[in-house]
């Protein structure tokens, strides 16, 4: 009889899973994210002045007990606009990549698994989408359908599909040749089962790492579109539109542009930091080979 290769020492060591030090930076990033999400969710409950009430006598007021971060060019409370703007930035920043992740991820996996003509069609149509100037698409959609958060999310989501497709397809291509996929075929597994049980858990990891990156990029792009006036319609505030409005008074009150810019910078940085740390944590092979 073959010998048992697992010793008892290993059994004793098993429950104590290796703990990795996460670092101060990670916890700062987590703290900032929790704060941003909390105020964005609780924006209506918090004792803040209305973000759209104008007070023409208090234009560009400095920091005070009444207006913690002062007021903007129309005398609207800056802190309140920042908090409500976080909502827009997060909604668009999270939901647009979800569209890209589901559609692009599914197309990429199918293309990488089935290959052949289907793959050519998918890759070809994605190249067409990539070649289409994104600003023109955004302009066209907002011109015909009107400016709204929903439309903005859809545009940014569709624009993200090709990148997600490429990430999923590249991961699937290398995995589909691995022996464990052939083993599943030899076992008589259906295509659906191979895609969902064998490939998806392996493809999901690079996709989620890319998702967090896409969230960061989308928040910036939403800002850029709002800055150009293609984003959310006024008087709703988003960080991008606040920077855009602040541009007009850069010489007298530069903080109106800088405060939302700093908020956006910290949020994007936090997403990237958390994404990197999570990816390192969930890789099963880390430190094992």
């Amino acid at each position: 009889m073959a010998t048992l290769e697992l010793s008892l020492d290993e059994q004793a060591a098993e429950p104590a899973r290796r703990k990795r030090r996460l670092g101060l930076l990670f916890w700062f990033a987590m703290g900032w994210m929790v704060l941003v999400f909390a105020v964005a969710i609780l924006a209506d409950v918090l004792p803040l002045p209305s973000p759209t009430d104008m007070d023409m006598l208090e234009k560009r007021a400095p920091f005070s007990a009444e207006h913690w971060l002062g007021t903007d060019g129309f005398g609207r409370d800056e802190l309140s606009r920042l908090v409500h703007g976080a909502r827009i930035s997060l909604i668009v920043g999270l939901f647009a990549p979800v569209i890209g992740l589901t559609i692009g991820g599914a197309l990429g996996m199918l293309a990488g698994y089935f290959r052949g003509r289907f793959e050519s069609i998918v890759v070809g149509s994605m190249d067409v989408l990539l070649a289409f100037p994104p600003l023109i698409l955004a302009l066209a959609v907002t011109a015909y359908l009107g400016q709204s958060i929903f439309h903005l999310t859809c545009i940014l989501g569709v624009l993200g599909i090709p990148a997600f497709m490429r990430v999923a397809r590249a991961a699937t291509l290398t995995l589909a040749r691995r022996e464990f996929v052939i083993a599943a075929q030899a076992l008589g597994a259906t295509h659906a089962r191979i895609l969902l049980r064998e490939l998806l858990p392996n493809v999901l990891l690079p996709l989620l790492a890319f998702f967090l990156l896409a969230v960061a990029v989308t928040i910036v792009v939403e800002g850029a579109l709002s800055f150009l006036g293609l984003g959310v319609p006024p008087p709703i505030s988003s960080w991008g539109s606040m920077i855009g409005e602040g541009r007009e008074s850069l010489d007298v009150a530069p903080r109106l542009a800088f405060i939302p810019a700093i908020a956006m910078f910290l949020t994007v940085l936090s997403f990237n930091l958390i994404g990197d740390t999570l990816r390192a944590l969930t890789d099963p092979r880390q430190g094992a080979l």
Binding site: R178, E179, F180, I182, A183, A186, L187, R197, E198, P201, N202, L205, P284, R285
Partner: peptide
């Protein structure tokens, strides 16, 4: 009919 492969590590799904 079953199959056993050359590379035993690649034959097992790393995430299951």
């Amino acid at each position: 009919v079953q199959l056993i492969f050359q590379d035993p590590i690649a034959s097992l799904n790393p995430r299951r």
